[in-house]
Design a protein around this nucleic acid. Structure first.
Lengths: 177, 177
DNA sequence: CAGGCCATGTAAGACGTTACATGATTTT
DNA sequence: AAAATCATGTAACGTCTTACATGGCCTG
């Protein structure tokens, strides 16, 4: 359900082809909702079949430029304001923590340290992303970039939290000796 | 892949039937990796077919008690020490933030406030969970409960972070006027 | 003996990944 | 002319959800 929304959301910002969207998925959207090429193209066909988007232009190499329809806008509104039917929260990382007693304590400590370093690197990566893109965040009314930056901030806080947490667990682990 | 691991992990703590595991999924595991009854039973059959678990006893009402095998232990070890092939991170909540410019600012603020309150409630729920269960966390060597508590702590920090973040975004939203 | 809990299973369909397949256009 | 990029599609397979289906055992 959510890939449909992610694609629709990108088309709501501006029209584009499957290929265009694919680039945006690889660039920014992957941080929020990754998708593969295969999935994206078939989703676009489904969206068009359901009348949520329509082909606005046909270009070279069979390029189909899509545009969101009124029905598509309505569907987006519905989804954005209805968090209750989101897919359930799943975290392989948390599951791994849950099972960390199955390996020797030393290895568990190494894993936690690796996790902390990875999170540090993610914070750095997101800082670069924040610096690199040319954000258009000046208007009176909050626009797409305002919320994209908010999402970016969320990612940074999440990873900072993870790094702190992992180091605290290591500390507790070591205070057992 | 990860449900297989979650089930295997529970059986590594102690043997049990599909029904037993289902109760554990509803109780604690759902916070980490939710699964449905249907999925669990078929996964157990697959695990047994692959020799990662085996039926250790058959009881009344066709009850099959499963026990992890050596191959199962090996598979668990392999998975726990290999985070690189985890499924990619997906968050409907973040996607929604990304698209929040599509609704009026007032509604967006309401959504963020609801999010903050939900996260507060989650922190409270997890505090209760921490208080309610009889944790066995006294041994020299960190056991399952040590890491289960660490996972619980992670959940609390995550939700505290989310609540703070949502309130900060609201503040930035309001400083626009 | 009725109702609740124990206990397991199947089937259909949506969602996601990997791999395969094809061809047009632009750049070097 | 070759290589890179643009551009879309299909097929197979695994995961997850929802709904349906069945029946045994225990308690009141």
């Amino acid at each position: 359900m959510s890939l449909r929304i992610a694609a629709l959301g990108l088309l709501a910002q501006r029209p584009g082809s499957g290929y265009d969207l694919l680039k945006q998925f690889e660039k920014s959207m992957a941080n929020v909702w990754p998708a593969t090429q295969s999935q994206l193209y078939s989703e676009l066909n489904k969206l068009a079949d359901n009348g949520l988007i329509e082909v606005s232009a046909v270009g070279a190499r069979g390029r189909k430029e899509y545009r969101i329809t009124d029905a598509g806008h309505a569907e987006l509104q519905r989804w954005v304001t209805n968090p209750q039917d989101d897919p359930p929260f799943r975290s392989a990382a948390l599951l791994r923590i849950f099972l960390l007693n199955l390996i020797p304590t030393g290895q568990a400590r190494v894993h936690l340290a690796t996790m902390a370093e990875y999170s540090d690197a993610e914070v750095a990566r997101l800082s670069e992303l924040r610096g690199s893109a040319d954000w258009n965040d000046s208007g009176e009314i909050p626009d797409h970039d305002f919320f994209a930056l908010a999402a970016l901030d969320y990612g940074q806080r999440l990873n900072a939290m993870r790094a702190d947490w992992a180091r605290d667990v290591i500390a507790k682990l070591e205070s057992r000796h």
